[in-house]
Design a protein around this nucleic acid. Sequence first.
DNA 1: TGTACATCAGTGAACGCGCGTTCACTGATGTAC
DNA 2: TGTACATCAGTGAACGCGCGTTCACTGATGTAC
Lengths: 231, 231
Amino acid sequence: MMDQAAAVPALVSLQTQFHAESEHAAGRKASISREDLLAAALKLIGPHRSVSTLSLREVAREAGIAPNSFYRQFRDMDELAVALIDLAGLSLQKIIDAARLRAATDRSAARGAVEAFMEQLRADDQLLHVLLREGTAGSDAFKHAVERQLNFFEEELRISLIQINAAQGVVLREPALVAKAITRLVFGMGATAMDLPRAKDPELVRQLTLMVRMIIAGSRTLAVENGTNAA
Amino acid sequence: MMDQAAAVPALVSLQTQFHAESEHAAGRKASISREDLLAAALKLIGPHRSVSTLSLREVAREAGIAPNSFYRQFRDMDELAVALIDLAGLSLQKIIDAARLRAATDRSAARGAVEAFMEQLRADDQLLHVLLREGTAGSDAFKHAVERQLNFFEEELRISLIQINAAQGVVLREPALVAKAITRLVFGMGATAMDLPRAKDPELVRQLTLMVRMIIAGSRTLAVENGTNAA
DNA sequence: TGTACATCAGTGAACGCGCGTTCACTGATGTAC
DNA sequence: TGTACATCAGTGAACGCGCGTTCACTGATGTAC
């Protein structure tokens, strides 16, 4: 948990906030918490609703509070959206942890990672949906929050890629690029996969695993020509 | 133009609509056209605005017509959004045409295709933005329209991949999967690239080209083990 | 060619609604003595 | 322990606004004769 915190400043600040809040609550009981509002927003997000289409009043209604009580927790919906994205980072951390655990035992690290991803995608919390459902629209703060999470995932993936390849005696060229390609591909595929029936999950895992393997295998093949012949 | 029309039913129907309309207009002059409204909507789309956040009144205002005149052209904003997506298919067709043209002469088909993509991304018409800016939210009709365009692009890419590989004496395994991986990756990267300064375009082209090459190279390497060892 | 008529694209006014935000408030909770 | 007080999380009412949608209309255009 410590290296997780170290790796993701956003999560740290979020968790710190939560911690400070519960300490505060210990002395003063707050019947409305930020988490209540975040949970209410999550409940409202579905196949046809993204965070940016939620209204402040809708979220307040879902949370069972007066509209203006919302302001005790967040400046506006945009701030809630950013908090939600940061929270979704926890889901990414779970994927990473699960993938690393499986990489140690499974035959295929790629398949284990893809399965871990799909499991989070199908998790009850819907947290991953928040990251995938939105487009590239919204406030700068929101876009930066999304970008921060993607970069965090990429970085963790890059580290794992280097470790796995080193263990196999291979030096990976441009691991950052490989990590970025895999991340964007998996998230892009995941965005459309959200709306598919779960019956198709196995086929999706097969496809994604193969795609990820292609990228990794390709990065090894191209390693030599890369350095000099990129242009 | 004929095979383009044959490949994209959506575009055909759109073009047919336009054709029928201009014939009608020849006898009756319509001072407001669907194109005017589509153009107005495109003007309003920017870094912080996606189609789904536009209001009917905003579009009407931008087009210089009364709000209710909107209904003469579209049932609602959702129908306009679908028309806009179909229109964006023209941008995809341009990418495909340009990429095929370059593939015949350039050293690297991958690089040529990526450059063609970036040029459309930076084109004045902003058409490609419509496809990339949206998330996976919106009405079913809208999501299906987006999916239709992505599938069209994948299919064209698949055909080109087979041709290019055949010319090099290689048989590509799972070309549909390769096409899908490249499509989702490029569109995912493009979605974040939209907001980057153009100065970074060359670096982005380099990265994307390399990523695409990795996928293709990887697909050749993995071709043997695929068939039997997928699970 | 000229005139009377039908069509229908585009309009202006109006509606009810949900929105974000504000204000002064209330009443439960914790603190000081 | 008991009481008076300060704090402040949560409230109810109200605001002005932009929205989608409706209605009856108008006036330019094309057609019939």
